[in-house]
Amino acid sequence: MKSPKFDATILTLGFAFLYIPIVILVVYSFNASRLVTVWGGFSLQWYRTMWSNAGLMDAAWVTARVGVISATTGTVLGTLAALSLVRFQKFPGRMLFSGMIYAPLVMPEVITGLSMLLLFVAMGIDRGFWTVIIAHTTFTMCYVAIVVQSRLLTFDRSLEEAALDLGCPPVKTFFKITLPLIFPAVIAGWMLAFTLSLDDLVIASFNTGPGATTLPIKIYSQVRLGVTPEINAICTILIGLVTIGVIIASIGTKRAEIRRIRDEHVAARGTT
């Protein structure tokens, strides 16, 4: 009834499709030759070129700062939004609110980017570092809201009720009980927000100003001129950073899981 061979073939092909381009990119960042199709031996020269490219390094620094600040504000706002959606079943304009949470997830970036730019112009705000942060906060908070919301939906409310019953006031209950328990989701939301901010070209292009060129904008302007191994190098570093981040995160959760299982084991033995 099941056909494991067929399934395995499909998964192999699918994952090959997903990963081969990335692998090629990484491999060719170490290519001594400038040509894509010619392997000129192993070399780190493109990393050196990249390192000495001041514009690229500046852009990387801007991107990192934008990412951290907008991911943090986006996480706070997104967590509040998730709480509103899950915990308050009725408030005026709830429909509009949930609409505004879901819409940015699918809204074409050119529309979000352009409309936000026009807002800043209308308000007479000069575009630059902070407008990019506001724009990124706005669309990343929606992703955070979705991630945290799904955790809150499975949250056992009786834990909060127990805290209240034991005399803990509501706000304190939130910080002592709720937040620690949903914290993994909040962290996951932050990481998602950070990568989305790191990744964004279109929205940043519309809302940036002098001195606030982000890495994707820089990469894009160079990519339009053609494939360069230098770009391969910076892409490899970004991929490496993300991979390390994901590995650390998954080791963290796995450890917590192992600890939990071990604790349960000990507990089970203690009672019998």
Partner: peptide, 13 residues
Amino acid sequence: WTSFLIRVYAWIG
């Protein structure tokens, strides 16, 4: 998790 732009760029090569 890896950049959209990078993944599209990879296909150019």
